[in-house]
Design a protein around this nucleic acid. Structure first.
Lengths: 294, 294
DNA sequence: ATCTACCCTTAGAAAAACTAAAGTTGTCTA
DNA sequence: TAGACAACTTTAGTTTTTCTAAGGGTAGAT
């Protein structure tokens, strides 16, 4: 009998993380997204964990995977564990105190946040401010962001500005518009991920929507804004995002018919942050007060 | 501004594990032991974590390392997290249900457990029983052992047998011994990690210890036992470990002067185990009852 | 009948982790 | 006051792990 024998191998941590994500999200592909790897990698990691444990954790079906009983049993423990690990990350970020990481919807990052960055940088001297554009709000329990800016249903997060839809266009184009119906005849600038905006607005002002929206489509809202500036067509604007063009007159709203969407441009912050510093941060972003922030 | 930008890297899990062990144990070298790697590896991992976080976690002194305030702040969270991860391991082991892993002191493994293994294997058919010899009891919250057998101060774990010291030797040698004093003249068989046994016993029976123990030293207790069987000298026996040789008469105790050490051969089990199955396991090992065990 | 949205597998490439050995630095010892 | 010691660090090179890319398979949807 060996005296310094092989000890049982510790659990493969990466595999646990991959499994946790896959189990929580229900799909290997979503987990792969979250972890920023390919789905093949997730598939392998899950298999590694299964081999290590000697237990099947997922049943593979052609249309997806479903957790086995064993898998379901360990998921809560694992999630708990990785949440706590996320806390560690938060604390460390805080200790380091050098970075201020902001996550935001691409459109918000470019149209709303970018103009405010100089003031923000000025308000937190010595801290590097970085912006990450994401389609979905990150899990702030897990990921080391200082805050996140997204368009969320009212009540979620701290509302900074209500989301209001309003058709806008270049001043030259506006001169041809006499009544709201005239909008139907112009090209619509449509953002693919906000395709329902026109319908929402038309319904809100009581106009009948044509069967199909017509006009150029853009996967980036800010490109649609550029096109609107160039006079290509009418953009269904989220007011908060085009405010500054309305102020400079580069864009105009031919009709004063705002429609609320029930959402807001909202600020999300990690749990660890005090209410006070969250409010400070909000004030900073909305320009109502600019002073030092920790 | 990139749309699918570099997200902040997730924390390096291996580095977190290394740091947790180092911080908990206070030494890189101990952490290295626990993780079964070299201390250089721990040193590197800690540095990786520090670089990732941008925070110093240890102050390096020539005589060792001390946690910084930042390090101390994250340690509880981390320990918590890895404890939970340990639970996961336990559950998975349990689900797999194929292994019964026993950790034991080498001497206990060889002298006490080995003879009981056939009965144990018979009692848990279909489960593979494996034995790992360790100098120190493992952390059962973390490591996937089903149970552990160590010599522990009374009160720790479930006591199976009290630890009793008693000098023993081969029958031939015993014939030359008339009184306890005669022991001082014979070669002593000494286990290096239990070097104090002779002193403990001599003090217990009221004899004066010679300045220095004399006799061959062994790093493995079981080798000392072999030598005793061969008649090389007198062994200070832990009664539980040589019981069977006393029963067969291969070894004899020339004087009936047992001395209690205040320790016991004790059974440690993971927290998750019910009291009932722990007692069953204990019964199984002490031969008082052998039935199926889960 | 073809798409599409899943997941799997494999080979090879890239990255991470580890070891071994030599180096550094205070402390303790003779 | 030199030497031994017990820590940790560093570095080069090796081993192991993890990832990607590309090709496949299956069932449900169009």
């Amino acid at each position: 009998m060996a005296v310094d024998p092989p000890r049982p191998k510790p659990p493969p941590l990466t595999a646990l993380r991959a499994f946790e994500a896959a189990a929580r999200l229900g799909k290997f592909s979503s987990a792969a997204d979250e972890l920023a790897v390919t789905s093949g990698a997730v598939s392998q990691q899950v298999r590694i964990l299964e081999d290590w444990a000697g237990v099947k954790l997922f049943d593979r079906k052609a249309q997806g995977v479903v957790l086995t009983a064993s898998g379901a049993r360990i998921l809560p423990l694992l999630s708990n564990s990785f949440d706590t690990l996320g806390q560690v990350t938060q604390v460390l970020q805080d200790e380091a105190g050098r970075h201020m990481r902001i996550a935001a919807l691409p459109a918000i990052a470019q149209l709303w946040l970018a103009p405010r960055l100089p003031a923000l940088r000025h308000a937190v001297p010595g801290r590097e401010v970085s912006v990450t554009a994401l389609e979905q709000p990150p899990n702030l329990l897990r990921e080391p962001f200082s805050c996140a800016l997204f368009l969320l249903p009212n009540g979620q997060g701290l509302s900074l500005e209500e989301d209001i839809l309003l058709p806008v266009c270049a001043p030259a184009l506006a001169r041809s518009l006499k009544q709201p119906d005239d909008l139907l005849a112009l090209p619509w600038l449509i953002d693919t991920s906000w395709g329902a905006d026109w319908q929402t607005w038309l319904a809100g002002v009581g106009l009948k929507a044509p069967d199909r929206p017509k006009g150029p489509q853009f996967s980036l809202y800010s490109i649609a804004v550029q096109e609107a500036l160039a006079g290509v067509g009418v953009l269904m604007a989220h007011k908060a995002l085009v405010q500054r063009y309305l102020e400079t007159g580069e864009l105009v709203a031919p009709f004063d018919l705002p429609v609320k969407t029930g959402k807001s441009l909202a600020l999300l912050t990690p749990n660890g942050l005090t209410r006070k510093s969250r409010d400070q941060l909000a004030a900073l972003l909305t320009d109502t007060a600019i002073k030092d922030w920790t």
